[in-house]
Design a protein around this nucleic acid. Structure first.
Lengths: 300, 300
DNA sequence: TAAACGCATGAATTATATTCATCTAGTTTT
DNA sequence: AAAACTAGATGAATATAATTCATGCGTTTA
């Protein structure tokens, strides 16, 4: 029963001093305000104000309403502003899910201009998903999935943003460094360093070693890309990473990319990073902004 | 535009999970809620929720509305409760203004049974007023003024609650202690301790010293009654306080009351504590309760 | 003492909220 | 795979509530 409008009226009356001026301020008639307050006065059986000569005076109940108004109205106003900003795609949280460890470097490059362009929008990046990135997307844990392996789902729309070659990175000191490309059996005496995910999600296994029945001497797990490359540079192992990423670090480290050639991938392992979004809903503007920006980012 | 009702709807929907059940809870139809939300969706051009199979899912904007709802609705509810209780004269805040420092002891005795009797009513005591207690009362800062000096005003009704003698308190060791009463000139070599208010509001000046052209040797300011009495007991000065108050402390301290006799006050300074209330308005029940209680409280 | 000001109020009007009946789409049952 | 069911959306009809208009009454001002 007691409503925002009543609070607005009481506030306006206390500000302007008279109902008539309050009505002007609210673009209503004096009568409208008078009726409105009379109504809640009847409903709660309390007086809100009293005529005192020509002036009005708030009763205790009126003062309580005024207090309430002063507390609540700004919150309503702020919420409305937020709604309008959300409507214009200026406000929100873009929750990004990453399924592609080395893409982090790329993401940073995209997020930077995005934050500059969409001032009201925060970015949240998540990298671990209990049931995988796709279900995180469908379960509304994230709004955007960055993945090199776009698993089909009817409600998810994937957009490729850039192609890259998944190559082996080796130390400049390694004997392998002289080769232009190598085949699965060339790794039989090597130590392979990977991110801590299941082998079934590592392309070097699924698209290179496993189809040929080949394997490596040792398998080490490292979570951090830079450390991984330091290890490789120190000739303590080899790793599979995007060629552009390797080339980016090549200036500061003694490393080298080599194509992974096999019967199933005669030209090396070719991959595409895809952005996945839910298809059913109307995407907020800032999501489209992000998609557009992501296509402009150069990676090599 | 955005209103309490919308917040109520969103809250109910989030609690019950479906619009239909929310409608039941609010004693409305599913259609009503659907239309209401559609309206603000159109107005702000945002989605609040989405159908997802048989379930609903709040959008980001929807979640913000829900947050707002959870913050604001309880405040509305509380305000309504207060209104209803105010209507019944059962609930409110009794804002008491004190213009009489030593009356604090008396006030405590009155407030205690009052709080017991009026469970829903809070008491707020204010002691300092920028423009004095009378204007605080007329300006609705307080609802009740406790004063020994009832300044006339046509809209203020004063009721005397008890009479007392304003007497001098001296140490038992003081040579003055042997006197039954004393006159203004007897204080010429004494140190007078008073509360920190203007001399024009201290009866010992206005009704005793000043009319006779007398004065004291020294004037010390102390805010706290007990400390004041400790000082007196230690024979470091004398003070003017209600006789009943002095007698109350006489058991535990070596102090003594002495009447202040002068041509203008041949029987000592006789005072009355008055309760002042605004006359024009209908007083809430608990104010009358307080008035009634205050007359029963014995002070000596 | 008339004019001006300012709130209250009843009736008329306008706007808004709610319902009813129906539709659509997803989900479950058979 | 069809039928039955569930839950929300929607347009039109209706009910309710908000607003205005015209006017009255008390207070203040000139």
């Amino acid at each position: 029963m007691l409503d925002r409008s009543h609070l607005t009226i009481i506030k306006a009356v206390s500000e302007t001093g008279t109902v008539t001026r309050a009505a002007e301020q609210l673009c209503l008639t004096q009568s409208a305000l008078s009726h409105a307050i009379k109504k809640i006065e009847h409903h709660y059986q309390v007086q809100i104000w009293q005529k005192e000569g020509r002036k009005l005076r708030l009763t205790q109940a009126g003062h309580q309403m005024l207090n309430l108004a002063n507390r609540l109205i700004p919150q309503f106003d702020y919420a409305e502003q937020q709604l309008q900003q959300i409507a214009q795609g200026k406000k929100g949280i873009l929750r990004i899910g990453m399924e592609c460890h080395p893409c982090y470097q790329w993401l940073l490059k995209t997020v930077k201009p995005f934050l500059a362009q969409c001032e009201g929008v925060d970015v949240d990046v998540r990298q671990k998903f209990q049931f995988g990135g796709l279900s995180a997307l469908l379960g509304y844990e994230i709004d955007l999935l960055i993945t090199p392996d776009p698993l089909f789902h009817k409600n998810v729309l994937y957009t490729p943003v850039f192609d890259y070659e998944h190559a082996l990175v080796v130390s400049g000191q390694s004997p392998l460094a002289k080769l232009k490309h190598l085949s699965p059996n060339d790794l039989s005496e090597q130590t392979l360093i990977t991110y801590p995910v299941e082998a079934s999600r590592l392309d070097i296994f699924t698209h290179f070693l496993t189809p040929s029945g080949a394997s490596v001497k040792q398998h080490k797990i490292i979570e951090n890309t830079e450390i991984m490359l330091q290890m490789v540079a120190a000739n303590r192992g080899v790793a599979a990473l995007p060629r552009w990423l390797i080339e980016e670090y090549q200036q500061q480290m003694d490393i080298k990319p080599i194509s992974l050639v096999s019967p199933t991938a005669p030209n090396g392992i070719q991959k595409s990073i895809h952005l996945g979004i839910r298809e059913n809903e109307t995407a907020p503007d800032y999501l489209n902004t992000f998609m557009a920006l992501s296509k402009k980012v150069k990676v090599a």
